[in-house]
Design a binder for these strands. Structure first.
Lengths: 251, 251
DNA sequence: GCGATCAGCGGCACG
DNA sequence: CGTGCCGTTGATCGC
């Protein structure tokens, strides 16, 4: 049940101006030029235009669109030479263009989507850090956090703390397995801060796991690793170390 | 035009088993538990299931799905208690679950998508590196590349080269503006290699741009930056420095 | 399978 | 706006 290309034109325009979600499925080819460049030969894909003017071409695989554009200016026209419906998404900065030519349209429809709610996510890194700001003594006795999310010349330090000997301690928190880049990050912060303060600064990497290479590099630069055993899932979630510490108070 | 929830069940099953692309739009709520956890209250969304069993919930904004799962085992059932159609996507490793409850279905349809072609992308980093392997003399006279994509204990060095004085030179290529992490990366490689070879090793960062902080850090660690002026867009694309070098042969 | 890195990363928050 | 960084990052490639 092929649809007329020209009939689709007003449907698209109406959808875009009304901030409805538009779905267009058909045989098309795609060209992108901007930060990179790409060509996609003819094939069946879905074009998805959303209320925020996001413009995405989906193949029948992968989570991510094969081509896309955010905050685009969308234009539609009927290309009589090639007998196709031509949609273009443009962006000024950086200058990018995305052109889709539909030669057949199998399906087109726009949908009014009532959805005011936003997602509530648990277990993010900031959430972890906030909990850790309350108590770091499960790492070692006398380790006292005194500032979180410290904006820095070169980045943001998750937690600044002080150990029992009065040393400054940088704590880098990772919610998943720490890799080389995590260690590099911590090393960078430590370098910077020890230069600024002109005294020894410790760096502790707090993560559920760490790769062997990352651990090796960590030790090489006198940084420390502490396994972070935490539970995600709900607002009651607690870092196990803290929980354990609290219960052992009554031992 | 509300559709019967139970009627949708066979449509979904057929689509999934036939690797067709399934679109389901309606009022739903979503719960995710796995690497993190999230809740999404009732609202209109689109569920998109693709041939590779990717499972994505799209809101009418953003390029990315609000909830999703890759390589999922998909199950459907009619929940008679809550009178909803319940779709679950499960994954073993890491253990994750995604549950969507549809209370109304505004639209459901599956599509056979004929699309064998893959995207051709130009201007990727490996493509750049391959070109640079041919000639690095536009950076400085006598700089000779001798190996690309060098697998390493801790990462992969883009290009290994030797300068006119016989020094080992690590060249890190970035296709976009270099930031602190790029410098950290280069620094990591340089540390490693100079330790291994026990002699001085130079590190050159090759990128179209660099942030001020990154440049500062670069200089701090005796690394070098060279502006990479390149054109993307097509197979004939050339790094301008190289092009210039070649043309100046006839000057 | 894990490890490391790239990506047109996207999206956010802060300066 | 740029800079930096997190993300259920996803996707790729090498070991």
């Amino acid at each position: 049940m092929a649809l007329g290309l020209s009939e689709s034109l007003p449907i698209i325009q109406k959808a875009v101006s009304n901030n409805e979600m538009l779905i267009l499925i058909g045989n098309c080819c795609v060209e992108y030029f901007g930060r990179a460049a790409s060509k996609l030969a003819k094939g069946d894909r879905m074009l998805l235009i959303k209320s925020d003017k996001s413009f995405a071409i989906h193949q029948n695989k992968y989570l991510r669109p094969v081509n896309y554009m955010m905050d685009s200016e969308i234009a539609v026209k009927f290309n009589s030479e090639e007998e196709c419906l031509e949609l273009t998404a443009l962006k000024r900065k950086p200058k990018e263009s995305l052109k889709v030519k539909f030669f057949d349209i199998n399906f087109i429809q726009s949908f009014k989507m009532n959805d005011s709610t936003d997602i509530r996510l648990f277990g993010s890194e900031v959430e972890l850090s906030r909990q850790l700001l309350e108590d770091l003594s499960f790492i070692e006795p006398g380790l006292r956090p005194f500032k979180g999310e410290v904006p820095f010349a070169k980045g943001v330090i998750d937690i600044l703390a002080e150990d029992s000997k009065g040393n400054l301690v940088i704590v880098e928190v990772k919610r998943r397995k720490a890799s080389l880049d995590s260690v590099s990050q911590l090393r960078r912060y430590k370098d910077q801060l020890s230069n600024m303060k002109n005294k020894t600064v410790r760096g502790i990497l707090l993560a559920p796991e760490i790769t062997p290479n990352a651990l090796k590099m960590l030790e090489e630069f006198n940084l420390e690793y502490f396994k972070l055993d935490f539970e995600i899932s709900n607002p009651k979630a607690r870092i196990k170390g803290i929980q354990k510490k609290q219960t052992t108070l009554f031992d």
